[in-house]
Amino acid sequence: MKNKILMKGNEAAAEAAVIAGCRYYFGYPITPQNEIPEYMSKRLPEVGGTFIQAESETAAINMVFGASAAGARSMTSSSSPGISLKQEGISYLAAAQLPCVVINVSRGGPGLGNIAGSQGDYFQATRGGGHGDYRTIVLAPANCQEIADLTLEAFDLADEYRMVVMILADGFLGQMSEPVVLPKPSGKTFSKEWAVGIGNKNKVASLILSPEDGLTKHNYVLKDIYDRVEESVIKYEEYMIEDADYILCAYGSSARICKQAIQELRAQGIKVGSFRPITLWPFPYKELKKATEGKKRVLTVEMSFGQMLEDVKLSVNGTIPVDFYGIPGGMIPTPEEIVERIKSYE
């Protein structure tokens, strides 16, 4: 209890990055993630690191590109509109197999939208987001402790697979404060023989014009990595699944609303459990399928019009009915609304 600190989600992410050995942060202010650059501007110089408030989100992600190409652990953070701007750089990072961590403390959209938490960026996060045939690992925390733990782990995953790892949080998670026990560094080390500036005369590039099938071959190299990630990097949480008749499927903030709804439904004698994907890509297709076997129905709950819903349907693949409840635009579903929907199945 003594080592618990009450931290904002944004601060927990920033400090966890520092613990992970990230010494280069580049970002541009946007609500509701400003505590991350603010924290880094103070904290990184204390540990010999570099903070730059870039001139734009595009510049920031390209500074990350440079620092990562130079072999350093580097990150940026933003919120939805800013993440859209970073997609150019993310595609280039993916192509050049450069590891980095990108945090999206998402807000309501489309466009400038609003600054409330939202889950409207699921498609963008899990389907690549930028141009081309690539993937990013997407981790979705649901509380401040998990923001810290997953951010720390994100740096190891990024280095292990030489991929962009995105933390997909939302405004509520970024702004809320909860007790956090700061994680310990994993101690894993990664060779970066491919980096520039270490005397190897290396090239970090994504343009492959020749031979004719050069780019195709490179895409297969990436595909092999993505296949390995799909085999090895799956995270999810099950809650009261075993005897449940109905399964709520939600991630991040909406998964917490679901948990409360489950407690209320269980108190009324209705058997409900939940399945919370933590890796949104790779999505735990097989695990969700297994968790829903023999159940009466799945209710997907999102703060959007239903984006993860498509993955849930792909997973369940028609074996049981999949329903959806959600609100777009920065509103959050209430436990009562979820309770009502589940009770309508009885």
């Binding site: 618990k4 009450l6 609500t31 509701p32 600054i115 702004q175 809320m176 404060s177 909860e178 007790p179």
Partner: peptide
């Protein structure tokens, strides 16, 4: 925030969400 910290120090689970922005 002060209440959350005080309660946390007494072993309670706590959370704090501010309204934020403009």
């Amino acid at each position: 925030k002060l209440l959350a910290i005080a309660s946390m120090r007494e072993g309670k689970e706590v959370s704090h969400i501010p309204s934020y922005g403009a």
